[in-house]
Design a protein around this nucleic acid. Structure first.
Lengths: 205, 205
DNA sequence: TAGATTGTTAATCGATTAACAATC
DNA sequence: TAGATTGTTAATCGATTAACAATC
């Protein structure tokens, strides 16, 4: 069964899967073989039944009284998330946040590879250190078409975000990971994920 | 009516409010006076009725045929989110992501002020540039108690995250904004918001 | 076997959407 | 007035939780 055939719309679950993965890898390193839904639940701060529902999506089944095989789950989640086959991405805007992402090991772990970065002032940008070339913004459209990436990471100024987005969409990019505060307008077949740093500040009285 | 008296549990709405705020400020700068729910909805990529429901929470009412007063909405959302009264926070872990947050203007806009930063190797950390002192991690507990901040921003290595969290919780911190991949275990009266950079990668086939 | 844990089926809860009356 | 837009009330939808049978 291909990923596309599965229900894609279990968004809350999908967002939790990477957290399960982290936890499972940690347990695996500790030498654990199996894990129960209640243990995972406690570590995640959620209910065991929710864990079981989430894991159901990966098609991995557990064993009553034993729990789930950690290796199976790792494989199942990686497979479901499409990790393993690395996903190429562009990064646009090599400012402080952008360069921080360029060197972020987590992205690699998730199977994301930034193949090129773009900036208004490429010579100024502090990257290249990671071996990733930084091009001028004017080359974005051309290279997006040529290299045919489907994911872009947006770290530009909010005012520039929509313009850059339009270029990306025109070039066939299907996913935009938006770190700007701009609300992007995109066609229906393009997915945006906003990571605007807006905490639910109301934790404090 | 104090914020505390309002229903706090409209989480999806609360998470959308900062986005409305950005949009409204933008419109305000353009000289607009009023805005309709359908216009906001289009810009946000959601349904007009959802916008009206969201705005209901701020207690600002609109006018049929006219829409909402942009100034009123800005004030209402700021009031609701408790912006205006600045919230003091600690930042722990002044690596690349940490220093990027230290200089992030967005946080200031949201009324968040980082009053001190901590790092295992404070002398190595590249900050202080922003006038924010960087202390050694060993002083965290003491200073958290003395300065009495209620929010902390966590940018340490995942392995250190739980230890640092325990110190923070013991010192009375009530909100932890977690940028690590660790799953933090905290008491019920402490809120964590995870910003682990885990995109729903599945946008691409 | 007895007991723990999974996985299924049904119930609840909360968020979104729909319908429409109110109103400027 | 006529028409656009709000705000209310009800319906739908989806996610979480509960109950419990299946099973190792």
């Amino acid at each position: 069964m291909k990923r596309r055939d599965l229900k894609i719309d279990k968004l809350p679950t999908i967002r939790r899967l990477p957290a399960y993965l982290n936890l499972l890898r940690e347990l695996s390193i500790k030498g654990e073989q199996t894990v129960s839904s209640s243990h995972l639940a406690e570590r995640m701060g959620i209910e065991p039944i929710l864990v079981r529902k989430d894991l159901e999506l990966t098609r991995i089944t557990g064993t009553p009284r034993i729990g789930y095989s950690i290796q199976d789950l790792i494989g199942g989640i990686e497979g479901f998330l499409g990790l393993g086959d690395t996903l190429d991405a562009f990064l646009i805007g090599v400012g402080q946040l952008g360069s921080s992402l360029l060197s972020n090991q987590n992205l690699m772990n998730l199977g994301l590879r930034i193949v090129a970065a773009f900036d208004k002032e490429p010579q100024k940008s502090r990257s290249e250190a990671n071996g990733i070339p930084v091009f001028g913004l004017e080359r974005l459209g051309e290279l997006a078409r040529r290299i045919n990436v489907c994911l872009a990471i947006l770290c530009v100024q909010p005012e520039e975000a929509q313009d850059v987005t339009d270029i990306l969409v025109a070039a066939g990019v299907k996913g935009i990971w938006n770190f700007t505060s701009a609300n992007l307008v995109v066609p229906d077949d393009v997915i945006t994920q906003n990571e605007d740093l807006c905490p639910a500040l109301r934790c404090c009285p």
